[in-house]
């Protein structure tokens, strides 16, 4: 028997993971953090500017708009995606005809590259050549600027994101539901619990961990939305549908303001981390209560 619990052996085994984690996570974050304090602009040298980039962000109306849009998509997604995917998973668990095909159909968008999802939806939502407006036209509905205006574009992005993510979230919920102990469900039935009572007092409490994981994945995915915006609206009109990441891309690579772009990256990192931590804290409090 070889004991591996000695400190140096543990350190030895952790070392490769530590190196990888440092190289691919800690170093980039520290590097971006450093750059965010400079006026780096690509081809010329970078000079230290302190917190100027962070202060400039506060006055950047396009950045504020990107924060608002990202939070809007986050709220819509959490509000609709989690219940919808959970509901679909419950439905899949019932004995419905062609359940396998239905599952595959719902999971389909999750395996399509987001850039293609965006492309497909452009042909649906485009105000002039889009399918949706053509379908609404015979009903007397005038052309709607689903993705061509500042008012509806963020909502359209949220809808497409929910459409693309619902199958993936449903699959996780479905796997979680399949793992619930049958005897508990059977016992609750024998005790006379109705379907709603089973769901409310047995299924959901036992699925709390899975709900937490799905929500966390969802939150992190919302903070990474880029391709959908790029294809659907290009961030327009005039940056009014930018999300945090798409605006960061614009500032960094299109505007070539690397220092400012890294500042947005740091803000995205902090907001994403804080939101996830807050959610985890709330979940834990709910579990302990």
């Amino acid at each position: 028997m070889v004991w591996v619990s000695s400190p140096w052996k543990i350190a030895l085994m952790v070392f490769p993971a530590f190196i990888l984690f440092t190289a691919f996570f800690i170093y980039p974050v520290v590097y971006a953090g450093g750059y965010s304090l400079t006026d780096a602009a690509g081809f010329s040298g970078a000079e230290f500017v302190g917190l100027d980039n962070y202060l400039a962000l506060a006055e950047d109306s396009f950045f504020r708009r990107s924060v608002t849009n990202t939070l809007l998509i986050l709220v819509l997604s959490v509000t609709f995606l989690v219940p919808a995917s959970f509901g679909l998973a419950l439905l899949m668990q019932q004995r419905v005809r062609a359940a396998g095909a239905l599952r595959a159909l719902l999971f389909g968008p999750a395996i399509v590259a987001p850039i293609l999802v965006g492309l497909v939806w452009v042909f649906i939502l485009d105000p002039r050549v889009g399918l949706l407006n053509h379908l609404l036209e015979p009903l007397g509905v005038p052309p709607v600027q689903w993705i061509g205006s500042d008012s509806l574009a963020p909502y359209s992005i949220a809808v497409v994101f929910i459409w693309a993510s619902v199958g993936f979230a449903m699959t996780i919920f479905y796997a979680g539901l399949r793992l619930l102990p049958a005897e508990v469900m059977e016992a609750s039935s024998l005790d006379g619990a109705s379907g709603w009572q089973q769901l409310r007092y047995v299924t959901i409490p036992m699925m709390r961990e899975t709900i937490g994981i799905v929500s966390l994945l969802l939150i992190t995915n919302v903070f990474k939305i880029f391709e959908l915006v790029y294809m659907l609206t290009g961030g327009g009109p005039v940056h009014s549908s930018e999300t945090l990441v798409s605006y960061m891309y614009f500032v960094t690579f299109t505007d070539q303001r690397y220092g400012s772009g890294m500042t947005i990256a740091m803000v995205v990192f902090v907001i994403g981390a804080l939101t996830s931590l807050a959610y985890l804290a709330l979940s834990r409090r709910g579990r302990l209560a």
Partner: peptide, 9 residues
């Protein structure tokens, strides 16, 4: 201008 000037490339 075209009504989809925002969304067309």
């Amino acid at each position: 201008f075209s009504s989809n000037v925002s969304t067309q490339t």
